[in-house]
Write a protein that binds this DNA or RNA. Sequence first.
DNA 1: AAAATACTTGACAAATTTGCTCAGGTATTT
DNA 2: AAATACCTGAGCAAATTTGTCAAGTATTTT
Lengths: 149, 149
Amino acid sequence: MLRLSTRGQYGVRAMFEIARGWPHRPVSLKEVSRRQDVSVAYLEQLLGKLRRAGLVVSVKGPGGGYLLSRPPERISIGSILKELEGPVALTACVQDPRKGCVRVEGCVTSLLWRALGQRIEQFLDTITLADLLNTNALRRQVRKEAQSA
Amino acid sequence: MLRLSTRGQYGVRAMFEIARGWPHRPVSLKEVSRRQDVSVAYLEQLLGKLRRAGLVVSVKGPGGGYLLSRPPERISIGSILKELEGPVALTACVQDPRKGCVRVEGCVTSLLWRALGQRIEQFLDTITLADLLNTNALRRQVRKEAQSA
DNA sequence: AAAATACTTGACAAATTTGCTCAGGTATTT
DNA sequence: AAATACCTGAGCAAATTTGTCAAGTATTTT
C-alpha cells in the first residue's frame, strides 16, 4: 500500500543529480539519464514540471542543462514530490472537502487519514536535497525524526 | 500522492461498523452497506480477505454477520490495511531487496523511503479500532502522536 | 422440509492510472 | 550552419483499481 510512483522516485533522484552541479555547473538530462538509468524522454517530462514550478532553471545550448533555482538546503523532498504527484491526499474526502463523508461515522476515519497525511508531509518537508548530498547528515536527520516519534 | 485505495478505506469503515457489535452482536454486510454506502458485493470481497486473515469470524444464517475475532483494542488499523493492500512499500527496492537500486547513489534515497515507511507503519499500528469507537480517545491519540513528532 | 437469511468464491469487465515513447519543435553556442 | 540540449503535446500499452455478477454453501426459522 501507499506506493510512490516512479515519477516521484525518478524526480527525486534527478534532482539529486542536478543538486550535485550546484551552484555553477548545469547538469544535462543526458547525464542524469546515464547515472540514474532513466530515459531522457521521461526525464524531460518530469523536469518540465519542476521547472514550471520554479524548482530548477534551464540553460539551453551546448554545455547546458538544469540548475537548482535555490540552495539545496532550501528544496525539500516534499516540494519535489508535490509537483510531480500532487499533494499528499490519502483519501478523496481529505483532499476535497466537497466530496464529504457519506455518514458522520465516516468522518471518524477521515480524522485519521488527515493526521497521517500531516505526519507524512511534515517528514518530507523536513528532509532536503542538502541532506541527500551528505549521507551522514541524512542518517542523522532520519534518526532524529525517528527517535522523536 | 500516496493515495489509499477504496479497498483500504472501505475496509476500515466496515471494520468500524463490525466493531460496534462487539462482543455479542454479529453485524451483517447488509447493515454495513446501508450505514457506509458501499455495495454488499464489494464488501463481501473485502471481508473475505479479513476473515481469512483471522481478523473477523463469520456467523451464517439469519441474524448472522461478522464479529471481531478479538477485542477492538487489539486490532490495529495497520493490520486491516496490510491485509487489503499489502504491506507499506513506497518503492520496489524497499519492498524487495533483489530489485536493487541501479546505482549506489540511488540507495541514498532508498534510506529515505525506508524511514518514511517505518514511520507510517508505526503510526498505523498504534491506532486501533477501539480508538475509532471513541472519538475522544482518537483525538487524544492523534494529538499525542503529533506532538511527539 | 421449505423458505429466508447471510456468508463464500471466482470470474470478469469498465475505468483509471502509470509509465513510458515519439515527433516535432525552440533556443543557444561554437 | 551545425551541434547541443531543452520543450511540448499526443498517444499508447500495461497494470491497477473498483467494482459487478452468478452460483454456490451454511444456518435458522416456520
